[in-house]
Design a protein around this nucleic acid. Structure first.
Lengths: 238, 238
DNA sequence: GTGGTCCAGTGGCTCAGCCACTCAACCACT
DNA sequence: AGTGGTTGAGTGGCTGAGCCACTGGACCAC
């Protein structure tokens, strides 16, 4: 894989500010100190701080007004789904809620894909499914699995589902390694996913929805168990 | 309302670059000119350009690598649902696809809300619904309507639905004024939405899903008609 | 070939400073 | 008193110049 990107100053700064906000140490509605002052506190240049501010503004966590100041926003009120990755990293409560939505939307996507997939798309689905079974190692199977889900989203013919799928995948990113359980054995992963692809290829909407439901709840259970185990282990060490 | 925010240099720059990318003038995979050069082209400072870059990177439209350059990414591959507002502004095709997803997810939310809403939440829903009927003017009814949908999302007990609702609302923002049709008469808007709230309050999941489906497809039809009419009018003038 | 070194080109970050905007206090006039 | 204009301190927006850190290809010594 390679290409591990170092963390830049702005990355660190952004993370720090974000933690302060999500952790409630900078309550919604309150004003941050002036940029000059805050930059001094963090020991960075004002320009650098502004780059971090820019990102948080775009995320919907901050709001700056020229001549007035920078205020913390209520992210549950204004924030979009792109906040999920940082929320997952900040508090584990979110992952369960994401799973529930993933399941509902996954069923929806499978149903729509069954209704509308073109022959070329079903062929691609079969090809990508086969790649899951032949993947090397758990990480390979996990990535191959993700490709199948992307293709399913494309097969709905609705690009919004593609973007939603991206958003949900991004949400898993911070904990991806901990969620590799369902993909430990490539063959098993393949067999679990196969019914979904088969039902979509057969244009059987109800079966596709049902198969997706089974697939998602099965993998979900394994992942949540893994997370719970990891948490127990970590707490035991403490 | 007030508070019209002027467009800053960075805003303009971001918009310009985004249009170039979404319009295909900067194809995915291609490298942008070096920052120093591009800043000269636009007649802005390199720091300012970097602020615009920062936003586009966060959106998933660009990717910068230290020592190498800045490359355009394939947003359908990497972009999240937060791209929707800019996509709607760029091409009208998206709005139909968004409507379809809004309808499916809206049904889902109504069903879940019916299953899980607390007494306090149903009371709030009734209060917000009443506010729709009493709103002044189309814009007021539209905003009040949005508040009901936010409350429905909260009533699912799953905060991811809240964020998804925000994302979809944000997607409408660029064309909000053109979609005020269903809310021209506050009383009608109220009566159309009432069955959804009633079914949720009665904890009748199936009825809530059905009522939401009716509500969403009705308002959707009105909005799409309005858009088509506006387009015809505009094209007629041309 | 193989490995190491160098260097031009790129983005990351800093610095000092001016500009533009907001708001509240104040003042002048009615 | 009330109204409306002015001012100034404080804030974020933006600039220009410059150094640092990283990458990758060209080149060289072996």
């Amino acid at each position: 894989m390679g290409a591990l990107p170092r963390e830049s100053t702005v990355d660190v700064l952004e993370k720090r500010l974000r933690e302060d906000i999500l952790g409630g140490r900078r309550p919604a509605g309150s004003y941050l100190p002036p940029e000059r002052e805050l930059a001094d506190e963090f020991g960075v240049n004002r320009t650098t701080l502004k780059h971090a501010f820019g990102r948080l503004v775009q995320s919907g966590l901050l709001e700056t007004k020229h001549g007035v100041g920078t205020r913390v926003r209520d992210f549950l009120r204004h924030g979009g789904a792109d906040l999920l990755p940082m929320l997952v990293g900040h508090s584990p409560d979110w992952i369960g809620e994401i799973f529930e939505v993933r399941r509902s939307i996954g069923e929806l996507i499978a149903e729509r894909a069954a209704a509308r997939a073109t022959p070329a798309q079903t062929a691609e689905l079969r090809r990508l499914l086969a790649a899951v079974g032949e993947a090397e190692g758990g990480e390979g199977a996990q990535l191959a699995d993700a490709e199948v889900h992307r293709a399913l989203a494309r097969a709905t013919g609705n690009r919004v589902y593609v973007l939603l799928t991206n958003t949900l995948f991004n949400a898993y990113l911070p904990v991806r390694a901990a969620l590799a359980g369902p993909f430990a054995d490539a063959r098993t992963a393949h067999d679990r996913l196969a019914p979904v692809v088969a039902a979509v290829a057969a244009h059987d909407e109800a079966a596709a929805r049902a198969a997706a439901g089974v697939y998602l709840s099965t993998t979900e259970r394994i992942m949540l168990d893994d997370l719970a185990r990891a948490r127990r282990r970590r707490d035991g060490v403490r």
